[in-house]
């Protein structure tokens, strides 16, 4: 059992009663100990997938196993291995953070004394201990998000699923949450993270899957994915009107953006002398130049952008 992957999903499907096909046969493996990013645009199927893993959504077909335990057939065993931080706030606003954490542990059958010790540990680590006895409704948005993480840690899960945990959280708190997540991952907890902050996935995660329209469109290591960015794009501001016909230097793609702007795409590491020589020969003067934002965001748009709709 110890060699089983943290998550093993085979041909997972979900069609809602209204006919919406949210998952169209997803196959995915997350190894034990990984810090894994699951990315996708809104409505791609991420939350449905997480809902199935946490048993809040019933799958229409396929199978998901957590450390070898089938989620549907052995729900109770599987749930004991998982901690979930959902995207939407789902706290009882009238309870105190300390009670919320202790009760959550109780739902997993953890005795009250142990639950109290764990609650203090995780509320302290997430800098909420001084708010432990306040009403949850008095907490700020960022504090509520951290409280949901503390709550998810009460059963000390082997697999922690964080569904956009840093949405709407300021950068300082976001970084402290990153540190916490990296810490528990180093301590052996497998982490699956969905986020819209692509730099978050890029800086935290070792492996990544991109989901779009209910299908996995990319599943690889972060390093391999970023290595696919073998081209760089520069934006050139021209001193005069851009001519209709642009030169075509070898290995460089030039695109007219507007009458004063041109984009140049060329292989990473290639010198720019050829580009400027060609532009000069065509009588095009460049006033300034900047690198177009790229890396993960660019890949994400390429993989999930318009025209990528799966059948």
């Amino acid at each position: 059992m110890t060699s089983a992957p943290a998550l093993d999903i085979r041909d997972l499907r979900k069609t809602y009663p209204n006919g919406v096909e949210a998952l169209k046969g997803i196959t995915l493996t997350v190894e034990a100990g990984d810090l894994f990013a699951l990315l996708g645009p809104n409505g791609a199927g991420k939350s449905t997938l997480i809902g199935i893993l946490s048993s809040l959504v019933n799958a229409s077909g396929g199978e998901a196993r957590v450390f070898g335990v089938p989620v549907h057939a052995r729900r109770s065993e599987a749930m004991a291995l998982i901690g979930l931080v959902p995207q939407e706030l789902n706290l009882n606003q009238f309870e105190r953070p300390l009670d919320i954490c202790i009760n959550q542990a109780g739902f997993y059958g953890i005795p009250r004394r142990v639950a109290g010790e764990r609650a203090e540990k995780y509320l302290r680590e997430l800098k909420l201990w001084d708010k432990a006895e306040h009403s949850a409704r008095m907490l700020s948005g960022g504090m509520k998000r951290r409280l949901m993480i503390a709550r998810a840690m009460m059963n000390e899960p082997r697999l922690l699923i964080l569904d956009e945990p840093t949405a709407g959280v300021d950068i300082e708190i976001r970084r402290s949450m990153w540190q916490f997540v990296q810490g528990i991952n180093r301590a052996g907890t497998t982490v699956i993270l969905t986020t819209h902050y692509l730099e978050e996935a890029e800086s935290l995660c070792r492996n990544i899957a991109i989901i779009d329209h209910g299908r996995i469109v990319e599943h690889t290591t972060m390093r391999a994915l970023l290595a696919k960015l073998d081209v760089e794009t520069f934006v050139l501001d021209l001193a005069a009107h851009c001519p209709d016909a642009l030169p075509a230097p070898e290995g460089i793609a030039l695109r007219r953006i507007d009458e004063h702007t041109v984009e140049a795409e060329l292989p990473r590491g290639r010198d720019l002398n050829g580009l400027f020589a060609a532009l000069s020969a065509a009588g095009i003067a460049v006033r300034s130049m900047r690198t177009k934002s790229n890396r993960l965001e660019e890949l994400f748009v390429r993989l999930t952008g318009p025209g990528k709709e799966a059948a």
Binding site: S54, S55, L56, R75, S76, E77, M79, A80, I82, L84, P86, E88, L89, N90, L91, N92, Q93, N103, Q104, F107, Y108, G109, R151, N155
Partner: peptide, 14 residues
């Protein structure tokens, strides 16, 4: 309504 029923639904409780 407050969605905190999910605390119990995602737990191993029968």
């Amino acid at each position: 309504f407050g969605r905190y029923v999910e605390e119990m639904l995602v737990s191993p409780m029968p």
